[in-house]
Design a protein around this nucleic acid. Structure first.
Lengths: 354, 354
DNA sequence: TTCCAATGCGCAACCGTTTCTTTTATGTTT
DNA sequence: AAACATAAAAGAAACGGTTGCGCATTGGAA
């Protein structure tokens, strides 16, 4: 189907607006006016000629030149700990779409969860002259000093606590966690553990506080706290420790779906049933939670809306109006892992094939 | 900690190499030489002065200007169906890292699995003057006509069949699938189904052929073929159909981990045990396969190496040397779902807490 | 001492746009 | 018919960085 290989640079004559102008018999300025459709008016017949020349030549404006002249690259940067994490993947996708809808492209950068890398990535994005950056660390306070210096607009995306001078968008971390615990209490649990990420710098604390509040309101003592890495493996290890714990809790609130998936695995391996032996409630509302076994009850974040708001905040930011801290409500998605939905009997003696 | 809000544009005087030159008492050319460290030689003392001025002013070269002059944006584009799919998320991350190691940033674009969107995204990337694009569709042939016209180098990333005029990197799809089936046969299965994606335009076919070959070599008839969407939900539905099938197969080869996860869920809901009632082997080798229940046996793709090779191919592509079709070997990762590893007894009567 | 090569640096053109300003063409009003 | 208002198009100056070229300055060799 395709027969023409890419030609070497020499044979790839980029067509500029000058070529278009020549072909259409007008000046380059006119081409610019019809391309951008500014306030300057071009006669319909001229515009048509130009448009014809453009499509005949397959002309595409050079974004670099445009960016240079305008001082705006029409690109946004986003640094996340790890796009491999479904939560951030979903967030990044939502942001990409919201940005694209406004004509912005998204430059994605993984920090690997290290503050040093995050700083490096921000610096890199800054030198590429993005019009703004989304910062969505979890494990640590983002390195804002870097931004102060480069004076590039930023919004803290997955960040629920206020930071002076920065727009941020987050969710009701505390309230969501509190309600999850409240829900577990409603199932009759009185010994409820907490599985948290490590390096709790900022946001994670709110989940911890929510857990504490939920217990306090029910007059219950705090169960054990297990800290682990922010991934499946971490949750798995935490689960193993939980299984071995003396006075094992009957329920656990986990700070992310990913960790909960790992924890579920540890339970299965130990022969413990969820939710009968251990009820689980986690946080994020990712697709993976829906398809885990058993399906996870989880505190769902309105990712689309958050992304939308973040893009809005970043693009519309004038640098002078007061910064905002947008906090979105969360939803409790009730499934089997907390005991709400029935878990289908896992081993009905159906006749095995041959 | 942070007290200075972003200032309005007026108060953000971008410093250019001219400011640096003035402060260092040299010409702008010299600044350029020390920044880029070209063949031109600058005396150490002058270079030191310049460097000092640079850091004093916090100067960052303007990437747009550089791109304009050099004709290279030092950005690569990548269009994937969906970054939310763990396989593509991992691939994108690996590519981002490989590109970053060579000084390139990655512009990520989701096509949502539609050819029209993919075309639009490629066009968008082209107008942003990326130095090349990675195309990794699954469900359809990438729209190469677009690329032909814009003459922007491309490599087909997740693409195992050869396309004239394009570099591509893929895996031994057919061989991997064949071996997976062979493995299932080795477990004694004689009725082995296939769960495939829909719109099988290109690569999926190779998996189908591999499945056929594996069966043919064992002298077995072909089991049922179930086509479904390329996600968890699709696999779930396929699983439901499989459960209801007359003469239910005892094993199934699934074209992706994601689909297999959905299928697993359908099995559990139907009370069928994996691998006793149905052995499952899937494709991709994603992290999710490791943490599913039971853990999935899967054909693992060497994603890091593939990303590395793709970046190498794209950056090093001169447009004249013959294109290459890099095919990587795959690995069979054996876990419980095919019957290799023991599945821990799922319901030991351990005393429930309190 | 004189000449030449090498070295270090500055000048200025250019990359492809946008946009302000000026020029030219077209109508309209006395 | 002259003068003027208006619209349409052309001209040209940036934006910030790179780089070929040329001019000084220097050291060493003759």
């Amino acid at each position: 189907m395709v027969t023409v290989p890419h030609s070497p640079a020499s044979a790839r004559p980029t067509i500029t607006r000058k070529d278009v102008a020549r072909l259409a018999g007008v000046s380059t300025a006119v081409v610019s006016y019809v391309v951008n459709g500014g306030p300057k008016r071009v006669s319909p017949v001229t515009a048509a000629k130009v448009r014809e020349a453009i499509s005949a030549l397959g002309y595409r404006p050079n974004a670099a030149a445009r960016a240079l002249k305008l001082g705006s690259s029409e690109m946004l940067g986003m640094v996340v700990p790890d796009t491999t994490n479904p939560f951030f993947a979903t967030l990044a996708r939502a942001v990409e779409e919201a940005a694209a809808a406004r004509g912005y492209a998204l430059l994605l950068a993984n920090s690997g969860g290290s503050a040093a890398n995050e700083r490096r990535q921000v610096r890199n994005l800054a030198s590429r002259r993005v019009d703004g950056v989304f910062l969505s660390s979890v494990l640590f306070e983002p390195d804002l000093t870097e931004l102060e210096h480069s004076e590039i607009p930023a919004v803290l995306l997955n960040h629920s606590t206020e930071v002076p001078g920065f727009n941020s968008v987050g969710v009701e971390l505390l309230e969501g966690s509190r309600r999850a615990v409240e829900h577990l209490v409603g199932h009759g649990h009185r010994n409820i553990a907490l599985v948290m990420g490590m390096n709790a710098g900022n946001d994670l604390d709110a989940r911890e506080v929510g857990w504490q509040q939920g217990l306090a309101e029910a007059g219950l003592p705090e169960g054990p706290i297990l800290r682990c890495d922010f991934d499946r493996q971490g949750g798995y290890r935490a689960g193993q420790r939980l299984v071995a714990a003396a006075d094992r809790p009957t329920a656990v609130f986990v700070s992310s779906d990913l960790q909960a998936v790992g924890l579920l695995r540890a339970m299965s391996e130990a022969g413990l049933r969820v939710p009968e032996d251990l009820a689980v409630f986690s946080f994020d509302g990712s697709a993976e939670a829906e398809f885990s076994w058993p399906p996870l009850s989880t505190v769902a974040q309105p990712i689309q809306a958050m992304a939308e708001a973040a893009v809005e905040a970043l693009i519309g930011f004038d640098g002078v109006s007061p910064t905002r801290n947008r906090i979105f409500p969360v939803d409790l998605v009730l499934r089997a892992s907390c005991g709400c939905a029935p878990v289908p009997a896992p081993a009905l003696p159906v006749a095995a094939g041959q």
